[in-house]
Amino acid sequence: MNSTISVDLSGAHAFRDFAQEWRARMGETFALASYSRATVGSFRARSRGFRLRDVMFNRFESAAALRTTGPRAGADDHVRLWIVHRGTWRFAEPGGAEHTVPAGRFLTQTGHLSHFATTPGHTVQVLVLPAAEILRGEGTAASGPADSPEVRLLTAHATMVSRVLDGLGPAGIDAARETLLELARAALRGGLDDVEPRLAPALAQAARDLADRRLTDPALSPAALARKLNVSVRTLQRAFASEGQSPGAYIRDRRLEEARRALTAPHRRMTVSEIAARWQFADSGHFARAFRSRYGRTPSEYAALAASGTDAAQLKM
């Protein structure tokens, strides 16, 4: 069974609608636990994720606190990897062991949970994976930073899978699942095999995500991305090459795109020189040459045509 879920719910019947959609998309293997009455009554949440055979991924955001009243029924031979981005999650296991995971950390947990609870305004990504293929004789407990290179790669790949799963054929599904498992093992070990070709798409996506957040940073470079992801520059270049691009070209193209948006913004206040400086072009001349090469016009010509009401599709030709 393979399926995706994407819901954004609030209102009186939000939890009921969420539970119905979850059951239809995720099945009994990943059934929901019982939730407290307060949780059901104040439920407002956004959920984005997928089921890929025996693997489940979900990014869950909620303004309200959550609390379960007990474990879900049935056998549990999975490893859960909780990656907390906002708020705090608390997990209790049968027998009384309790774990608290603050924002910026991840925790793995196996077997049954007696319950879990969250603070209001939380965001978490959770992966549920087959224990037999993840643990392989290693310890069952692991915790670490949510922004480690291995976790970045894992979440980048999972997010990418959620976007394309509906269009994947059998070979693509096999590759997507195996890469999720390999990256999850790397997150638990704190290292990865950077020559594994199946990791290239996840590595390239993680690098793009990092670059997009640092486009105005003068220190952004392929080498800086490679250091942050704990791989060699050559490994990063190979990952991008599999998609027909280099990391340097990606950074340049994204900066040009953001500069183009700034040039055509309503009530623009920045000059062409200021836009060039903000998006880290050496000078106005360098910016103008790069911009003309990409869009066929100088920045000033492009901005003037946009102000005259020229169709956006014609501007990008």
Rank of each mutant, 00 (worst) to 15 (best):
R72A: 14
L113N: 00
T119H: 05
H122V: 01
V124G: 10
P71Q: 01
F116Q: 10
V84P: 09
H85Y: 03
I83A: 04
E93Q: 15
R86S: 12
G96D: 09
P130G: 09
A97H: 09
Q109S: 13
G70A: 11
T68M: 01
L135R: 07
F91H: 07
D76V: 00
V84I: 11
H99K: 11
V84M: 10
V124M: 13
R86K: 15
R105S: 11
L113M: 12
A131I: 05
H115R: 14
T69L: 01
F91S: 06
F116C: 05
L129D: 05
T123R: 14
S114P: 04
E98V: 14
P94W: 01
H122D: 04
T88G: 02
A92T: 12
P102V: 10
H112M: 13
G121C: 13
G87P: 11
T118S: 13
H85C: 12
G137K: 09
F106L: 01
H115S: 15
G95L: 10
R90A: 14
A92S: 14
I83Q: 08
H85N: 14
T100I: 15
T123C: 14
G70L: 02
A103V: 03
V126Y: 05
A97E: 12
T118K: 00
A97K: 07
H115K: 08
A103P: 01
A73W: 08
I134M: 11
A97M: 11
S114K: 08
Q125E: 15
A131Y: 03
A73E: 15
L113A: 02
Q125M: 13
T100K: 06
H85D: 15
F91Y: 14
R80M: 09
T119S: 15
H122E: 11
G70E: 12
W82D: 01
G95R: 06
H115L: 11
A103G: 12
T68K: 07
R86Y: 03
T100Q: 13
G70C: 07
P71G: 14
I83W: 00
